[in-house]
Write a protein that binds this DNA or RNA. Structure first.
Length: 658
DNA sequence: GGCTAGGTAAACACTA
DNA sequence: TTAGTGTTTACCTAGC
């Protein structure tokens, strides 16, 4: 017959075994070679033996981390004398184990996870105080040197004007020092105000580490000012989105005159350079140098005018050659990027939380936020059995899975006893209208790493898997692989869900099996997929009412936003359905690579790319065997369209775009 | 209570 | 013979 199994490139079990890494990183504290540790190690290695101040600052950071360790030990053992607890076995496993690690192994994130905000604040304050003290000592030395210079110059019988100049310089330097101290005080205050916000790992790392000795004191001061500016801007905007933060801080630093005369004459904030560079990079033709734009050198702190690229290259090679200064600036830039990345992660998390909030009513009795936007908090600790409602039967979905989706779902779904997960998924999807593509786009990492069952039906997932491919067709094994690749949950119990996948493929008319030279592939008949639910909603004001009330304003609005997000769906690139009679229902025939195949009367073949359109197995559905116009003339289809949008956002999006 | 949709399990047939 | 694929049926639950 048409059944060929030559497509078994790899077994599903192999694919399961081949993807263990994504499961291991969930909720675990990296012991080694994580970003922070690697960076710290490399930084210390680079600065070893060269930069005394860098080492000093590094030692400072170690001191702060040591204090954190002591706090942890105190917290764990209840003893107030850290020295007595140094060699004791930890009574609290995780924190002390972390505390026992070398300071380089403790990242700021881990500290934030372990320490309380007050402890963190105390640590950071001590850290900042130490740093301020060190800087003050450093500048005191500078002052002494200036004094010595002044005395020597006086002894040498210099002219009065020069003495006055030096005196002015001295006074200016003192003023700068005072300003810097004020900035540091503000920084401390900001840290105190910000509490956890101020304890963003990147900020601590930017403040503390690796300010290399190669950077001149003025540069150091400039950088500190820029950091404090950035800090102030972030405080001012407080919870504003990252882009505005960056742009605002950039503009503020851009317009603000530099406090000191430095070798960074423009006062341009190095903290904003990455974004500026990146933004300018987009404006420039691809051949342009990312460090050159608008006739200026975009090297951090340098706005040297260069008429052309050749001059810029020359300038780059002369002024920004490989030396201590450039290395230091590069290092600082790396930290700036790191901080921005951390800030981006936090802002993304905030966005996720906002979207999660908008997906549900505030008083929703059965909030479903677990599968929706927990990317940043994709830790299984929050889904521990302790969170499972008492008295509820443990879901029988998986006997082996340590954290079953049922458990995760019910932990937030509510007290409704749900021995089966299936209807819950359906309800969730229906109620919150979560577009599968946007949901997956938002929480891809979450589902990829957390063994939480996606709140979508098998049919939706299969459809998404198929539509994710350029050809809109997948073999069964490829569908399996998509499931296991996209969802950690489907790396277990393969027999169950694979059977369900096959069951759904065979059961639903929207899935069309096509035989080609590759073997049997499965495609999606969008028309059939659309037709599955509209009758349920057509002409039912009560349903619409219930749906709207169930969605709430926020959810409804979110559905539109999600619909907007859905507009980027690959399917939308397909030609529109012309004969949809204004229904907006995206006919499966016209999406993707439909090429007006000869057998157009066959409704099952349209989505096939030419190389695949060979044989189509149509499920026996006499009523559906008709051609497109008939299937498009579904009763009440016009009226069902808006409701269909609400009911199936992911498909509604395609409708909107068509 | 009936209908529908979805999930799960199982049996069966077919093929490589 | 085995494993994968595809189909079908039955049962259950939840929502309407």
């Amino acid at each position: 017959m048409w059944c060929k199994n030559d497509m078994m490139v790899e077994s599903a079990s192999e694919s399961i075994r081949s993807t263990p890494t994504s499961q291991n990183g969930v909720g675990t504290i990296p012991n080694q070679s994580d970003g922070g540790g690697a960076r710290e190690g490399s930084a210390s290695g680079e600065t070893n033996g060269e930069l005394s101040t860098a080492e000093l600052l590094h030692f400072q950071q170690q001191q702060a981390l040591q204090m954190a360790r002591q706090l942890l030990l105190q917290q764990a053992t209840g003893l107030s004398t850290p020295s007595s607890t140094e060699n004791k076995q930890p009574s609290v496993q995780v924190p002390v184990s972390v505390a026992m690690m070398s300071p380089q192994m403790i990242t700021q994130q881990q500290m934030q996870q372990i320490l309380s905000p007050a402890q963190l604040q105390a640590v950071m304050q001590q850290q900042q105080a130490l740093m301020l003290q060190q800087l003050q000592e450093y500048y005191k030395k500078q002052q002494e040197q200036l004094h010595l210079q002044l005395l020597s110059q006086q002894q040498a019988g210099k002219q009065q004007t020069k003495e006055a100049a030096l005196g002015n310089k001295h006074l200016a330097f003192q003023q700068q020092l005072l300003q810097m101290q004020q900035i540091q005080q503000q920084h401390l205050l900001n840290l105190q105000r910000q509490s956890l916000v101020g304890l963003q790992p990147g900020q601590g790392q930017v403040t503390l580490p690796g300010l290399p000795q190669a950077v001149s004191p003025s540069d150091l001061q400039q950088l500190l000012k820029e950091m404090s500016n950035n800090q102030e801007d972030s405080n001012k905007q407080d919870n504003s989105e990252l882009s505005s933060t960056i742009s605002t801080s950039f503009s503020s630093s851009k317009v603000s005159p530099p406090i000191v005369h430095t070798s960074l004459p423009n006062g341009q904030s190095a903290l904003q350079n990455p974004r500026r560079d990146s933004s300018s990079h987009y404006e420039l033709p691809p051949s342009s140098h990312p460090l050159y734009g608008h006739g200026e050198c975009r090297w951090p702190g340098c706005e040297a005018l260069c008429e052309d690229m050749g001059q810029f290259i020359k300038h780059l090679n002369t002024e920004h050659a490989l030396d201590d200064r450039s290395t230091a600036q590069c290092r600082v830039q790396m930290q700036v990027v790191q901080q921005l990345e951390i800030q981006l992660a936090k802002e993304s998390e905030r966005l996720q939380a906002m979207m999660t909030h908008l997906h549900m009513r505030p008083t929703e009795p059965k909030p479903f936020n677990q599968p929706l936007n927990l990317v940043s908090s994709a830790t299984h600790t929050k889904m521990s059995p302790d969170n499972y409602p008492d008295g509820l039967p443990q879901p029988p979905t998986s006997a082996t899975a340590p954290i079953t989706p049922m458990r995760a779902g019910t932990s937030v779904i509510s007290s409704s006893s749900l021995p089966s997960m299936g209807p819950v998924r359906r309800r969730i999807v229906d109620k919150f209208n979560t577009p599968i593509s946007s949901e997956l786009a938002q929480n891809h990492e979450f589902y990829k790493n957390a063994e939480v069952r996606p709140p979508f039906t098998y049919a939706s997932l299969i459809r998404q898997a198929i539509l994710d491919t350029p050809d809109r067709q997948l073999t069964l094994n490829e569908i399996y692989n998509w499931f296991t690749r996209m969802f950690a949950y489907f790396r277990r119990n393969t027999a169950t869900w694979k059977n369900a996948v096959r069951h759904n493929l065979s059961l639903h008319k929207c899935f069309v099996r096509v035989e080609n030279v590759k073997g049997a592939v499965w495609t999606v008949d969008e028309l059939e997929y659309q037709k599955r639910r509209p009758p349920k909603m057509t002409g039912s004001p009560t349903l619409v009412k219930n749906m709207i009330s169930g969605l709430g304003y926020g959810a409804l609005n979110a559905s539109y936003q999600a619909a907007l997000a859905e507009s980027s769906f690959p399917l939308l690139n397909s030609p529109p359905l012309h004969n949809s009679s204004g229904s907006g229902i995206h006919g499966g025939h016209d999406d993707v690579t439909s090429t007006g195949e000869p057998g157009n009367s066959n409704e099952s073949s349209p989505r096939l790319s030419p190389q695949y359109s060979q044989s189509v197995h149509v499920k026996e559905e006499p009523a559906e065997e008709d051609v497109r116009p008939a299937s498009l003339s579904v009763p009440n289809q016009n009226t069902a369209l808006p409701e269909d949008h609400d009911l199936e956002p992911e498909t509604a999006m395609e409708d909107l775009s068509s």
